[in-house]
Amino acid sequence: MTTDLYQQIILEHSRNPRFLGVLTDAHTQAEEYNRLCGDRITVFVRMRGDVIEQAQFTGSACAIAKSSASLMMTLLQGKTIQEAMDLYNKFQEFLTQKTVNEQTNKTLELGELRALAGVREFPSRIKCALLPWKAMAKAVHPEGKC
């Protein structure tokens, strides 16, 4: 059902994205582009050591990509690069696993990102949900070793 996909929290974040806008004093930034639909997300990151002190994003994208970016931003602030990448991997696993063990699900610490669970039923939209994460990974791993 599309109502499972477009939960209130998704719609709300896509309408009022958190941490939206260019971060003028960013140390690093990266853009990710979906060739299929033309969506673009740019992630800006200001680092303190290996900690993401502040992260923001800009772009034009669908509700799924935008809300995923917004939710990602709420989780990223203050995380280490390692923690951010762990979260990315867990989220990726969460979206691509056919069935998620409820117990594992709870320990994933994905928080509100779980609202994107509906994407699992829409394979063509998984890319949308992962777009901002790819941009984030590219930004914090500019040499592409993610």
Binding site: C37, D39, F122
Partner: peptide, 26 residues
Amino acid sequence: DIHPHDVGTILDNDGIAIRTGHHCTQ
């Protein structure tokens, strides 16, 4: 300002097939 991919997904759920995207005419 609704993204065409969101429109396309919701219509598809009602069995309606339209094209959404840049139509190879960027």
